[in-house]
Design a protein around this nucleic acid. Structure first.
Lengths: 237, 237
DNA sequence: TGGCATGTTTAGTTTGTCCTAATTTATCGG
DNA sequence: CCGATAAATTAGGACAAACTAAACATGCCA
């Protein structure tokens, strides 16, 4: 297992780096200095320096010029932050009148300040939810997540029907727009038309008929409707 | 008025210093380097250095070797932190199952991370409380507080009756003990006996007859019972 | 295969906050 | 009013995390 090091508390910066590296390495390949710098709004040299320190602490594996990956310890920290972030978002929306487009910023600061205990109290108050308001899965207390593989709206065939499950963005403007056109998790939509060359997609869904751009469509992740409209919990056919 | 400076965000350290200085200067006299260092668990030279920086920023007035006082700007920051702290404590107790002895630590971290907006949402959810679970007054949104002058239990005459209003400590052990012996805000107690030379005090109150030490007694602040049991809102006699 | 664009790292600084050791100031008792 | 003691400050340094400017590596294309 991992060296359960003397665990001096991690700084806010370290937590943020690990969280971003987690996101960027979701698809298996190492994260680049440049991308990390972009997401954290820092200069590349700052990132380079931090990666060295993170590697010394055993939180990442860094091959200079080749990119960085999380170690098991690093992934644990990152998943802990992801859990915190998503539970905080869920709580603020459920109990304190926040909307799905304005919770991110608040959660971004709170996730570094709350205790494990408070997170578990919030989770309990929410009934241990498995997804946050954006449809992102919440790692459970022992940090396991089921990363379900959904299909972007751009890949649903014309004429097909699908249920929106997850919106892959934190940007308030995009989220407000998606809510306005009715593309929120749980909504069922039908693809009426899709133009070529990254062209617009026409859907019928919660808020009637809508035309949305290709880029945004790529962020909306869906579960395609089953042939027979029943039992997505049924394993036995 | 005060120079509404470009307001670059204050650091956590600065907020903590100002809050401690606020507490230490409540009774009018300047705070000493040594006392600040004691409360913040820092060395005296660290505090000396920080006081110089705070003075440069116009948050305190520092007369070297003589102590430090808050400026209006500094007091505003401190009161804002006090409001945040006490609302967070109230919220955690009311909605998330915290007890009065374990909220302090959590609030101590959260107060630096929450937005003004979240604080106001919590305050609204609580019905804009005027006192926190320890009986400490919560500054209102424009930061005015009524610092009521209560009387310590040690000053109530033997045979006298008083209502506990405020417990002047954050220490979990003391708070748990006070709760166990029934000395919580709102409880009415009668002083049965007080021994000389900082001796123990015998009270009858919420949890029956109790003997408590002089030091603890000094922390329990009370409103002495009126001669006639009525109308403490009446101005006209 | 050599050269160049792109991306990364090293070098050297800055800022904020802390430390220990040494020095200076204030004060109180004789 | 002088010196001892307690308190505060200065001096000098460390460390985390950011920066800019300069040097260096990788990989692709002609």
């Amino acid at each position: 297992m991992s060296a359960a090091l003397a665990q001096e508390p991690l700084t806010r910066s370290v937590e943020d780096y690990l969280k971003v590296i987690y996101r960027l390495t979701q698809r298996g390949q190492p994260a680049s200095t440049r991308d990390i710098a972009g997401w954290l709004q820092l200069s590349a040299p700052s990132v380079s320096g931090m990666l060295r320190r993170l590697a010394e602490q055993g939180l990442v594996e860094h091959s200079p010029y080749r990119g960085v990956q999380l170690t098991d310890d690093g992934r644990r920290v990152a998943l802990r932050m992801v859990r915190r972030h998503r539970i905080i978002e869920s709580y603020l929306v459920a109990f304190l009148g926040y909307t799905w487009d304005d919770v991110h910023e608040e959660a971004e600061r709170l996730e570094h300040a709350v205790s494990d205990r408070l997170i578990e109290r919030m989770a309990a108050a929410l009934g241990h939810p498995r997804f946050d308001p954006h449809g992102d899965p919440i790692p459970d207390e022992d940090l396991s997540v089921d990363e379900l593989s959904y299909v972007p709206l751009t890949d649903i065939p014309v004429g097909g029907t699908a249920e929106v499950r997850q919106v892959g963005t934190d940007q308030p403007e995009r989220l407000r727009y998606l809510a306005a056109v009715g593309l929120t998790p749980g909504t069922t939509v039908t693809i009426l038309d899709r133009q070529p060359f990254q062209g617009p997609i026409t859907v019928r869904g919660g808020a009637g008929e809508q035309v949305i751009g290709h880029e945004l469509g790529g962020m909306v992740l869906c579960a395609p409707a089953e042939r027979q409209e029943e039992g997505r919990n049924d394993d036995a056919v």
